[in-house]
Design a protein around this nucleic acid. Structure first.
Lengths: 235, 235
DNA sequence: ATAGAACTATGTTATATAACATACAAATTT
DNA sequence: AAATTTGTATGTTATATAACATAGTTCTAT
């Protein structure tokens, strides 16, 4: 369960969500600052679950989360990997539906909760805020459709290569500019790439043999980004 | 290519797009009426193509269209089936991107084109309009994610059954309350269900043998909707 | 420190479905 | 009306990948 405490100096605040905060007038900023709460989650915490009702807008100030749906015979499909400063759980909020996916912490998170009423009020007075959400949704929908096609049509190698490229785009690299800055189990990697854990492990090994990757436990080094891109592109 | 002509009495007008028109003030309605154009498309016309730049909001006043992406080795994946009075092509418009999918006419269409500038002006003055688009996007994103999971995880029978159920929800039935009110080739049905044409034909035949469907050319009668639902659910 | 659990690795088998082939029917063009 | 193309139907074969099995490794908790 999340721990609530006052933010410490080195911790992010809601001011660090530019696509929300920077758009607001001074008056609106004050309203937002007075009307949100901050929660802290640790690894493996569930932020929300499929079937629950959203209560407000969640902003990921810090940390990494996976968003997944349960499919046929409880097989998990990761539909999104989020990083700060992303919004999460906002699809269900604005669709006025229950959550259709669950959200679990990959790396310790700081999350700002803006009550539904508050975010709706802000949107009423600030058209730029609505436009920002529209743009967010439009981009995510584009990505979702792209993934639908690639996950259904590409072969295993192409799917895994693509997932690694996507993870690179979302989280980037560690200081060495090669190691993926996200620490995922083989199972998560498989669930993000629509394959079994065995096949994720096997294909990862193949990429290592081909000198495209180097693997050390859960740390994945991309040695040959061009080849990885090419494997992804060809399917 | 589309033919432009004045609308005739029996033809729909932009007033028949409630989620756009009904939201507006009288002044805004007049502005919209003065600043849109109407086009007519016939079967197999391309409305827009992957890679093109959107110029405005398209409202489907009448007709049926498929929206599809080219995947690996030009294999076509239908990502959406639209019916009047849906918006189309609005994802790319609001994301400020090129179209990532193409749109082709299934049944003759009447389409209203609202220039980008005009719809943006309306959204600036009318927060409810922005909210309507946000809701549309949120629903579509939910559907896209649901389909990603089912198209990747369900088996052929489940995928086809689900597609038929989805088509029923979108287009409904003919007067007999059994025949699907959309006339698709086996190939389109396959491209909507992530399978080869052969397998769509084969599986359709199986459903006919099982008395779940009756097929007469491209007309598909759903004889046992419950069983079809069950096949879809079980995957 | 040790036991148990969870994760990673790799080989083998089974199977769903794509790919291919052929034939017939319906629509379209000449 | 004949010829050509396009769509539908069904059988056969090939293959990608899931399912299963086994074992080693790393993490976690008592």
């Amino acid at each position: 369960m999340p721990v609530k405490k006052n933010s410490t100096p080195e911790e992010p605040t809601i001011k660090d969500i530019p696509k929300l905060y920077n758009i607001l007038t001074d008056e609106e900023k004050e309203y937002l600052l007075d009307n949100h709460s901050t929660s802290y989650y640790k690894k493996n915490d569930i932020i929300y679950q499929e079937g629950e009702k959203p209560t407000g807008l969640l902003c990921l100030g810090k940390g990494k989360v996976k968003i997944f749906k349960e499919g046929v015979s409880r097989r998990e499909q990761i539909v999104r990997m989020a990083s700060a400063p992303d919004f999460i759980g906002y699809r269900a909020l604005f669709a006025e539906e229950m959550h259709i996916a669950s959200s679990e912490v990959i790396e310790p998170c700081t999350i700002f909760h803006v009550p539904k009423k508050v975010i709706y009020n802000l949107m009423k007075t600030n058209p730029a805020l609505s436009m920002a959400f529209i743009k967010s949704f439009a981009s995510e929908l584009g990505f979702a459709r792209y993934r639908t096609v690639t996950l259904t049509q590409k072969h295993i190698r192409g799917r895994l290569a693509e997932s690694l490229c996507v993870l690179k785009d979302i989280y980037g690299f560690e200081d060495d500019e090669k190691t993926l800055a996200v620490y995922l189990s083989r199972e998560d990697l498989a669930n993000f790439s629509n394959m079994t854990t065995s096949n994720a492990i096997r294909t990862l090994s193949a990429f290592v043999n081909e000198k495209v990757l180097a693997v050390n436990g859960r740390n994945i080094k991309i040695l040959d980004a061009d080849t990885l891109q090419r494997i992804s592109r060809l399917g």
